[in-house]
Amino acid sequence: MSLSAALSYGSLATKARLAPYSNKSKNKANAYTSNQAHGFTLLEILVVLVLVGLVSSLVMQGFSFTINLQDRLKRQLINNQIHDLQEIWFRQVTRSFIETVPNENQVAFRGTSTTITGTALLDLTGNAGIPTNTSWLVENTEQGQQLSYTSESIPKTIVANWNTNNLRFQFLGHDGELYDEWPSNPGDKNIPKGILLSSSSEEPVFWYISISNTRAPPVETYEFN
Rank of each mutant, 00 (worst) to 15 (best):
N165Q: 11
T164L: 03
Q81I: 13
N79C: 10
T141E: 10
N165Y: 01
W182M: 00
S96M: 07
E202T: 03
Q146H: 07
F97L: 08
R72L: 13
G129Y: 10
A120T: 02
R168C: 02
D71A: 06
G187R: 09
Y179L: 11
N79I: 05
Q146T: 15
G129A: 04
N79W: 03
S200L: 08
D180I: 00
Q70S: 10
G129P: 07
Q70R: 07
T115E: 03
E142V: 10
E203R: 07
H83K: 15
E202S: 08
S184W: 07
W182D: 05
D71K: 06
P183S: 03
W89E: 14
G111S: 02
W162H: 08
R168P: 03
L77N: 12
E177L: 12
G126C: 05
P192A: 03
I209M: 07
A128G: 05
L197T: 09
Y208A: 00
I116W: 09
L85F: 14
L85D: 15
N140Y: 10
F109H: 09
L196F: 03
P131L: 09
E152G: 10
T117Q: 08
D84S: 15
R75Q: 11
T112I: 04
Q86H: 14
L122K: 06
K74T: 10
N103I: 01
Q70K: 05
S184M: 14
L167D: 13
W162P: 00
Q92D: 14
Q92T: 11
E202P: 09
P131D: 03
E152M: 04
K74N: 04
I158K: 15
P155E: 01
S184I: 00
E177Q: 14
G144A: 05
Q145F: 07
L124I: 06
N105G: 13
L197P: 08
G111L: 06
Y149P: 04
A120G: 06
N161K: 15
T115Q: 01
Q81D: 14
F169Q: 10
S113E: 15
F206V: 02
N133H: 00
Q143C: 00
I82V: 15
N105L: 14
R168A: 15
K193T: 03
F97W: 00
T157S: 02
K74Q: 12
D123K: 06
I154V: 14
Q143A: 06
L69Q: 07
G194P: 11
E203D: 01
L77S: 12
F97G: 01
K74E: 12
G176P: 12
G176A: 12
I78S: 09
S201M: 09
N127V: 15
V138E: 04
E99I: 08
E87N: 15
T134H: 04
I130E: 05
V101A: 08
P131V: 02
N105W: 15
G118Y: 03
D180Q: 05
H83T: 11
L172T: 01
D188E: 02
Y208R: 03
N140G: 11
P192R: 01
W89Y: 13
Q106K: 08
L147Y: 13
T157Q: 06
P155W: 09
W89C: 13
N185D: 05
F206D: 13
F109K: 02
N133T: 03
T157F: 01
L196Y: 02
S210Q: 13
R75M: 05
L124A: 07
T134S: 02
E181H: 10
P204N: 00
F171P: 10
L147W: 14
S148Y: 00
I154C: 04
F97T: 11
G173R: 04
Y179S: 15
L121Q: 02
T115P: 00
P155S: 07
